[in-house]
Amino acid sequence: MKAAELAISPFAATGKFSLFLIGEIGRIAIFFFHGLFTIFTYPFRISNLMDQIYFIGLKSIFVIALTGAFTGMVLGLQGYYTLVKFGSEGMLGPAVGLTLIRELGPVLAAIMITARAGSAMAAELGIMRISEQIDALATMNINPIKYLFSPRLAASLISFPLLTSIFDVVGIFGGFLTGSILLGINSGIYFSHMEAAIVMDDITGGYVKSIVFGALVATICCFQGYYTHTRKEGFGAKGVGKATTSAVVFSSVLILISDYIITSFLL
């Protein structure tokens, strides 16, 4: 009996984990669609949306610009020393531009916003949950998902592409700073080659990514906070801490995984 149990246990564990995973994905999907649809239902809380755009979007600009600048600068530096070996340092512009617009812009911006706003969403909703504020909304006949999640989702869908654009532009000028001003590539060559190499599809692709990341980050972070109380391994303040951690970790990992999947479809 014991031996049989022992033999089965890895399978049982795998099965249990798979069921949990499928269940969790299902719950997240329901949460996401509930939030998405209620964006368009009455009443529209414009001021809540504005608050969230201010918090997720406007307040992130500085961090995004800073990381964008240094990403662009290091790309310019690395790119120059690699390209100069082949005598094609003129291609630095397209290299920096394409890397930023197609890959690094959306991904790094999303990870930065996760760290800044995503963690805050998870912690805020988590605390609202454990202090019964979410229940209080429900008793007032206010749909808590619509009241709390929908504005955050909508604000993310609006802010992520815009922040990504800022990241891209600042990054391109960062590359220009190192490549052209410090290392002496002709600025005309830097920009004209970039202009010639980048097509509209690259830019749309970048936006598609950033919109998907926006939905992903908002959904996972809000989900983790909103359902803090259902976690088995931690309640109260500890639960909120764990929810915040897993919100950031899951969001970041899923950003990279979904980036690969979207890229493979777009190419």
């Binding site: 605390i127 609202m128 202090s131 019964e132 504020q133 229940d135 209080a136 008793t139």
Partner: peptide, 18 residues
């Protein structure tokens, strides 16, 4: 929904929106 509008609930921990 209409029924819920007739109810009010006072929580043990107050549950004020902080």
């Amino acid at each position: 929904g209409e029924l819920k509008d007739r109810f009010s609930y006072m929580f043990q921990g107050s549950a004020l929106f902080d």
